[in-house]
Design a binder for these strands. Sequence first.
DNA 1: TATAGTACTTTGCATTGCATAGTACCTTTT
DNA 2: AAAAGGTACTATGCAATGCAAAGTACTATA
Lengths: 125, 125
Amino acid sequence: MDLENAKVQMRKGILEFCILQIISRGEVYASDMLEELTSAKIMVVEGTLYPLLTRLKNSGLLDYKWVESSSGPPRKYYVLTDNGKTFLEQLETTWKELQESVAQIILDSYHKKQEASNTETEEQA
Amino acid sequence: MDLENAKVQMRKGILEFCILQIISRGEVYASDMLEELTSAKIMVVEGTLYPLLTRLKNSGLLDYKWVESSSGPPRKYYVLTDNGKTFLEQLETTWKELQESVAQIILDSYHKKQEASNTETEEQA
DNA sequence: TATAGTACTTTGCATTGCATAGTACCTTTT
DNA sequence: AAAAGGTACTATGCAATGCAAAGTACTATA
């Protein structure tokens, strides 16, 4: 069982949320998104990002426009559609709920270990 | 783009962590794990849980023993191995880091929207 | 013109949760 | 005793998504 794989799997499913968040700041193109993610210590590769952007565009959550670049090839700048904004809010709620769920499990584990520890102490006394 | 699917995808990758957490409390069998997860609002089905338990056992993170039940068929009680305990700690760190990463992205989005908003105000003045 | 850098596209693969079907064991009912 | 019901576990095809890698396209520089 591989910690690196666990990190990858944990990342799955939240990237969509993170990308929509980043795009919600305003027009942005793929390479900048990658930098933002990396800056937040979420390492993602282009083979992941581009298909994801395509999926989101095809689902009507994103729009894009081509913008000529003064330092290389043209860039695809993405923005959220209204549907995208709505969906992002829903994802934010979902993410919060998930965090709370996990926190509850951790807290319950802590309490039950305390209970078990107290029980053992009583048995020794 | 389906919110329910997004929930499923967000769940992927963290179930392993949640299950190890639950088992870290002490011996527990599958149905009780399902109840604990459901109680924390993480809805998981047996077709997910059992293969996961098998994978964790095969990876040396879990051990189990059969216990006769007074109210039905025998049950498989799982416990963490030492490797399992170590790995769980690593997963807890990984989860925390992921939360922080997401929080940073959200915070950056908030700040950048603020900047954009301030810029627009200045332009109007 | 060739090379380098940048941006985007494509695709096979690995992993994992879901849905579903099925097996097995024990208890209760007929 | 046999059948039905309840509980626990097993197996598998499928969908979804991130990774790794290969490739295309555009622009700037050598």
